[in-house]
Each structure stands twice: as C-alpha cells, then as structure tokens.
Design a protein around this nucleic acid. Structure first.
Lengths: 236, 236
DNA sequence: GGGCCTTGTTGCCCCAGCGCAAAGACGCGG
DNA sequence: CCGCGTCTTTGCGCTGGGGCAACAAGGCCC
C-alpha cells in the first residue's frame, strides 16, 4: 500500500468524490497506509477516536459490546467505505470495535488532519453528508425491523442484504462471500445463535438455502424475499 | 411568525450556528414561516421530501408506519431542532410522518434552496455533520438496547431520556412535559401498550412514579437509573 | 350533569424464542 | 490421519411478554 495505491482508493470512495486531481493528491499525501490481518483490530470500542480509516480492500466487522458481555454486530464495512468517521468527527471514543474478517488494506488520517481537510475542502463535508444520511436511514430501518418484526423475517432480510453487499454468483445460487458464524448472524438480527441455527435448518429442509460452517448459500432468493416481505400470519 | 421571529429561531439552532449576521438574514429571507396545531401533520411518510422544517416552538412526533399497520415512534423534535433534513438532502421521500403534539411554529425551506444555501455557505454543511453524527450515535445505542435489553430496562431508559429532553421540575418530582400515551411509550421502546401499562403500574406501586392520563411523573429518578443500568438478573 | 369517546388497567391464555446441555460435524495443524 | 478446538445442531423446558377482551377511569362537549 503505497501513495499511488492510496490515490486509487480515494478515487473510488464517495467521501472524496468530486475533488480535483491536485486536491486528491494532497489528501493522499496526508494519508497513512495500513494493512490488516483477519482477526486483528483496527481500533477497539472505548478507545479515543483518533483516526479515520478508509478501506481499500478486505472486510471489517463493526462490533459493539454491551456492559454485560453481549454483542451487537452493527455493520460490515467493505472496500471504498470508511470507518470511524462518526466518532472521529465527534471527537469522542469509538462506539464499537473494528475487527478484520479478511485480510485488507487501506489508509487513514488523524482527526485533526481530517478536520483541516474538511475546512479547506468543503466538498468533503458535502460528500460526508449523504454518507451519514444513508447511515441514519439504514439504522432507522433496522430499528423499525427490530421493533416490529419477528425473527424469521429479520434473518431473511439480513441474508438478502448480505447478498447485495457481498453476494457471489455460483452455479447453484448465490453465495455469501464472507465468513459469518451463526453467532454473527444472530448479533446482526438481535437474536441468539440457537434461533438462527434452527431457522437455517428449517430453510435448508425446504431447499431454500444450503449452509455450512461459516457459509450460507442462497438457492432460492425469491422465496427468501417472500418471507422477508410477507405480511405476518394473518390480520383481518 | 414573521421574518424577525425566523431570525431568532435560526440564531438558536445548531444548524445555522456560526453564520454571520448577513448570512443569517439571507437564510431567513429564504425561509417560509409556518404554524401548526396539535394533531396536524407537517408532512407524511412517503411524501416526496420537498421541504426541511425548523421548529421554533412546540413538539413534534416523528412516527414511522410499517406496511402492516404497526408504528414506531422514531423521535421527538423540540424547539431549535430541524425535521426532514435527512430525507430532503437525500432527495427521496420522508421516511416518517411528522405530527405536532403541541401547538408550534417555525420556518421551512425547500430542498433546492437548502442545497443552494449549503453550497454558498459551507459552514451550514459543516454544522449539519455533528447533527447527523449524533443521530447515528443515538440510533446505534437504541438499536443495541432493543437487541439486547429487556423491556423494563428500555422503558426505564426512555423515561430518563424524556426527563432530560422535556422534564419539568415539580414539587414532588420531575414531570414529563409532554402528552404521551402508553401507546406512544410502547412505540418508542419497541413493545406493546399492555406491557408498558403493566410496568408503570408496578412502578407506581413501588412509589417510583405517579402516572395519569398521558402523564408520567417521576418521583425517584435514582431508582429508575438503577433499573436502567442494573446488570440483568444474575450471571455468574 | 350526562353521555360519549379516548385512554388506561388487568386477568387470562398462549407461544415465540431463549438458553442450557449434550452430542455431532468440520477443518486445521502437527 | 489423528486430535483438538471451534462451530453447529437439536431436544427440552421455561418464561417474558404479546394480545384479546372486558372493564374502569378520565376528560370533553353539549
């Protein structure tokens, strides 16, 4: 990951979209490259939010721990996306731990530098807004889901979301292109690994999916959509 | 609500904080004032997001409806806060309905105007960021709560949040300064009005709160904090 | 003051989903 | 190819809380 790699990453990011070539170069020069191995952490929850990271390649899980030892998987971050923006701009602590799920690389800036860059190039601030807006939107949706829908539907939705994020076409369906345990899936849907396991077993029996260790293959996406969208059992 | 009222509203808002007097005036001139009666709606879910509203006085509920008729109360908006920013910036539809809970007034801008103002005065965009950031943060917290905590704790937290938002000291405690039905409380915590009612009854028996029609009075905030923070039943 | 409508309470039943425990299955490293 | 650690499945019992129904209590309007 050298400076010209950084440049390539920046060009593909929404955050720095629309900057002139010179501006981009300036941003790239201020960047510090990094690489990360699976299982390693970019930052930990409660650490002071010092840096913002932009992922060039790889997959990172954002996990929030509760005081009593439970976990919530807030979001998966893929190439071209940034981590720690929210906390770094706020100047507080990271609200979650960022753990690599696949080997990755990218570059980072410290909070001060980012602020300086934003003040100097308002375009960046303007770009950050749609990003934040879409986060708000997504969180609102997930909140509503969690508040009103039963587990099976939430899991169906999750798989569909994963398909669109990291789905890979394979001969007999679409493979989730990422290693996720039942526990991970449970943390993303606000349930337990037991329940996820049971639901997947049931779907497997129906020929809807094919599961394996940390693997899920969707064979009949449309039927999953039916489960995700269907109105609850009946309600005159 | 005339133009100078608008100016006063703007001055108290975070969104337009730090603008020069002239800039503020320009923004105020572009604003359209409004007043609203309890029960009336500023906008409805699924309407194209045409305008952004800034509340000068009053209280507005942001309610999201699910396809099958359930509801989620996303947030309460008070004086100085803005509504519809997210949707208007995104240029999509309002993700929720904004309904007044008390008589109010304020001013509004259409999406194009706001965009123009932001481009011309990047300060506004920079101001919008902390606002959005705090929304993301809050939603993440509520998401985690909903995913990992049981109802009683969530209700306790909600009341505490309401106290800090709209609490009014009265002789024998703190009054929630806003009319909220059990249904409203349920929609904010992702549960049902029955459960909320039962919990409040129980707390009333313990002398923790005093409830009435659309009224909640907290008599012992510290004990509510204990419920909100306490670790679950036991876990060796 | 009386009627009506909205909001709140509570008993009852029921079930989705939690969580333990114990037994597989997978796959890596040696 | 074996062993061990990690991940997954499944049976079982239990309970939090959902939801109906019926009733009570406010509050508002005429």
């Amino acid at each position: 990951m050298n400076e010209s790699d950084s440049l390539a990453v920046l060009r593909n990011s929404t955050l720095f979209h629309g900057l002139t070539a010179e501006e981009l170069e300036k941003v790239a020069r201020a960047a510090k490259p990094f690489t990360i191995e699976p299982g390693a952490q970019l930052f930990r929850q409660e650490d002071p939010a010092a840096r913002i990271y932009m992922l060039g390649s790889g997959q990172v899980k954002l996990v929030q721990n509760t005081p009593d030892g439970q976990q919530v998987l807030l979001r998966l971050v893929g190439p071209g996306e940034a981590l720690g923006i929210v906390a770094t701009l706020e100047g507080s602590v990271y609200p979650a731990t960022a753990q690599a799920a696949a080997p990755g690389s990218g570059c980072s800036w410290d909070g001060k530098t980012l602020h300086r860059l934003m003040e100097a190039h308002p375009r960046i601030a303007l770009n950050a807004i749609p990003f934040l807006v879409s986060r708000v939107h997504e969180l609102q949706d997930r909140f509503r889901e969690l508040a009103t829908e039963r587990v099976e539907r939430r899991v169906a939705r999750l798989l569909l979301r994963l398909v669109s994020q990291v789905g890979r076409r394979v001969p007999d369906g679409v493979q989730i292109g990422m290693a996720l345990t039942r526990q991970d899936l449970a943390e993303m849907t606000g349930t337990t690994l037991y329940t996820v396991s049971r639901i997947l077993s049931q779907w497997e029996e129906l020929g809807l999916v094919k599961t394996g260790r940390k693997k899920v293959l969707i064979r009949a996406p449309h039927r999953l959509v039916a489960i995700a969208e269907e109105l609850p059992p009946a309600r005159s």
